[in-house]
Design a protein around this nucleic acid. Structure first.
Lengths: 135, 135
DNA sequence: TTGAACTGGTTTAATGTTGAACTAACTGGA
DNA sequence: TCCAGTTAGTTCAACATTAAACCAGTTCAA
């Protein structure tokens, strides 16, 4: 594969993701959060501190501050000072947060699955394997 | 594949792309354009009108206005009124634009290829085929 | 022709994002 | 015990993005 082919491939992938986001934005918005907030929420269990979240999601710390603040204000997230390190804010998804998170992820998965439907079951498994190797 | 698995897969893919963008941002910036501007530039040949570009890249028209303006000011793009439809601005990549475009795409492809390197040549071809079906 | 509906592109004003600088808290060596 | 260096998180001011409204040009049915 030549270098330009790789760029082309990359660009295809990028466009695919952007169009999936655009497709679900309205429905996810109806749940009371933005698509990007959904991404944040869905990583809280695995990365329960803002700085960890920011690193995991490749976004600057101030951006995370804003998202966490909004998610907390919406009642989807709780925040408490970590007793072991008073600088840290340990995050926890609330029951309401868990509900919208699962609904949101389902919407996202459905939109993605609609495209995946163009592939056979075998091809879907192939894609999954390839992407897992890449990450 | 369950719904949540699809969401997970999607999220993996998203993170992969974001981290590639972050990795090349500095080097591409040194060429005199942003990564997003590079995406725009690289689609001009195929979609030579702003409205087409905006649709192809899934971004709002005003955003495209800004990018086109910057790329033109930087000398990477030329713009002329389409004689067949005076509303349309036909875009053309300048020689300078073509040069930074190829360098930028090479940087992007290198960063992506670094990850692709985890796949065999056959797997890379497979991935390409799958993504082309999805787009 | 006319004019209502549509399309390409821009402007403006509001909103979202983020680099730089900051505060508070921790860490480790002298 | 200090204090210099580091880390978590925030604030603020600058910058980027975009929805809504707009203008100019096109289309097409009457």
């Amino acid at each position: 594969m030549t270098k330009i082919d790789a760029a082309r491939l990359w660009s295809l992938n990028h466009r695919l993701l952007m169009s999936v986001i655009a497709a679900v934005a309205a429905e996810v918005g109806a749940l009371g959060l933005e698509v990007k907030e959904l991404f944040v929420l869905s990583e809280v269990d695995e990365h329960p501190y803002p700085a960890e979240l920011a690193a995991a999601l490749v976004m600057p710390k101030p951006t995370m501050t804003v998202y966490v603040k909004r998610l907390e204000a919406a009642g989807f997230l709780r925040r408490e000072i970590d007793p072991d390190d008073l600088r840290k804010h340990r995050l926890a998804v609330t029951p309401a947060g868990r509900k919208v998170m699962q609904r949101g992820l389902t919407l996202l998965a459905d939109a993605f699955a609609e495209r995946l439907g163009r592939l056979s079951v075998g091809e879907q498994a192939q894609l999954r394997g390839l992407l897992e190797k890449l990450c």
